[in-house]
Every structure is written in C-alpha cells, then in structure tokens.
C-alpha cells in the first residue's frame, strides 16, 4: 500500500463549556510526508492530543482544512469519517483499550469485521499481525492473562491488521516501564521503517520522542518548533 501525505491549513479547534469558549488549537499549518515518523510533544493542554484526534478523524476542526491523501476530513459527515477511519487509520492508545472478554486474536480480528473478508482471510491477517508484534504464541490469551507490554502489542497488532496508511499513537508508552517502552517504540520504528507506515505519536517523554524522525513542539495551541531528528534507536 502506498502511504499518503497530510496537509493542515489554518486548523483551529475551540471547545465550549457552557458559554465559555476554550481555544485549543490556534491556526495550525503543517505538512507531513508519507512514511514519516512524527512525534508531537508539548506540555499538558498544548493541544497535541486534540491535533492527533483531528488527524485521526475522531473530531472535526472548528475551522481550517485537513487533507489526508485525497480526503478532506472537515468535509466529511460522521458516517463518512467512521468509514474512513476503518480503512485508513490504526489507533494505539495509552490504556490499550482491548476488549477484556475477547482473546488477543479476537481483539485483533475486531476491525476486520468491517471488511468483506472470509473468516480464513481474517484469520491469516490476524496471525500475521500478531507475528509482527511477536505474540503469535499468545493468540488465545485474554487481555487479563497478558502483561501491560503484551497488551500494548496486541493493540498495535489491532492497529496494523487492516493495513492502514496512518498509525496514530497517543502516549503508547505512558503506562509501561522503561524496558517495555523501548520494545514498543522499536516496534513502531519497525512498522515505520520496514512497512512504510506513517506514524504520528503523542508523547511527553523525550526518550520516546527520540524514536521519531521529526519532532513537532506545540505550546498553547500553536506549532512552536519543528525539528528533524536522527533516530538513534534502530536495534530491530
């Protein structure tokens, strides 16, 4: 699959609490090339998670334009965005958000239910995705039977099983110890380097950020600094 580029033009987001307007993003202009590993950093409330949600089609901007490939997200209805997400985006969350009553394989299979695939094809894709994250032996385990790192790997397998263009990771190592964090970040790096996935990651952690090739610093809803980074961790 060919990755797609991203372009944001004057993107603004305002949240409202009763009559109080809270601006979160104040005119973001940004271009991301296909296949980049971009890290968003910034203090709490800087708007990095909001920006990630907008890029993932989970929310709509108050104004401005978000083009991902040929699609303009701000012009899509909720139904169109839902469908778009299922085909183009893989999500990785800090708290994993696996379904506890399903096995690892069933969790990974979940997004494939939105595609017209035979059960055999689904099974093959699940096995491949779990192999990529190194959990082929844990397919039938439930989330409660896995460690935090393993749960996050299952979440990564779930994010890549549909072969999306974009992988969005919101503090993917925020709940993990240092060793497991390194493993997860190396895995993301592998997906970027060897599978050509565009990865957009939000983190507070400078060490985690050092895995990206580009680091964007946000402050008070404004893109403060855009750094190119030479990733040093390439052990996998």
């Amino acid at each position: 699959m060919v990755s797609i580029d991203i372009e944001l033009h004057d993107v603004r987001k305002v949240y409202y609490k009763s009559t109080l307007a809270i601006p979160v993003l104040e005119g973001i202009d940004l271009q991301i090339a296909a296949g980049e590993f971009v890290v968003f950093m910034g203090p709490s409330g800087s708007g990095k998670s909001t920006l990630l949600h907008l890029l993932g089609g989970l929310d709509q901007p108050t104004s401005g334009s978000i083009r991902i490939g040929a699609d303009y997200l701000e012009q899509m209805s909720e139904t169109e965005l839902t469908r778009w997400r299922s085909h183009h985006v893989g999500f990785i969350f800090q708290m994993y958000h696996l379904v506890p009553v399903l096995t690892a394989a069933e969790n990974v299979e979940l997004p494939l239910l939105l595609f017209e695939l035979s059960s055999r094809e689904r099974r093959q894709r699940v096995e491949l995705a779990l192999s990529v994250v190194g959990l082929a032996e844990r397919m039938e385990h439930r989330p409660s039977q896995l460690s935090g790192g393993q749960e996050q790997r299952v979440a990564i397998a779930r994010a890549i099983v549909t072969d999306p263009d974009l992988i969005l990771a919101d503090e993917p190592t925020g709940d993990l110890d240092a060793k497991t964090s390194t493993e997860i970040l190396e895995l993301l790096q592998l997906l970027n380097r060897d599978f050509g996935k565009t990865i957009l990651m939000v983190t507070h952690d400078p060490k985690a950020a050092s895995y990206g090739r580009r680091i964007l610093h946000l402050e008070k809803g404004i893109l403060h600094r855009d750094e190119t980074n030479q990733p040093i961790h390439t052990s996998r």
Partner: peptide
C-alpha cells in the same frame, strides 16, 4: 464507556 468509544474509533458505526 471507553470500550465502546474504542470500537467507534476503530470504525464501528453508531
């Protein structure tokens, strides 16, 4: 709540 939100994020419709 969050599990259903995750399903929605993955692309499951309303």
């Amino acid at each position: 709540f969050s599990e259903l939100a995750t399903m929605k994020a993955l692309g499951f419709g309303r």
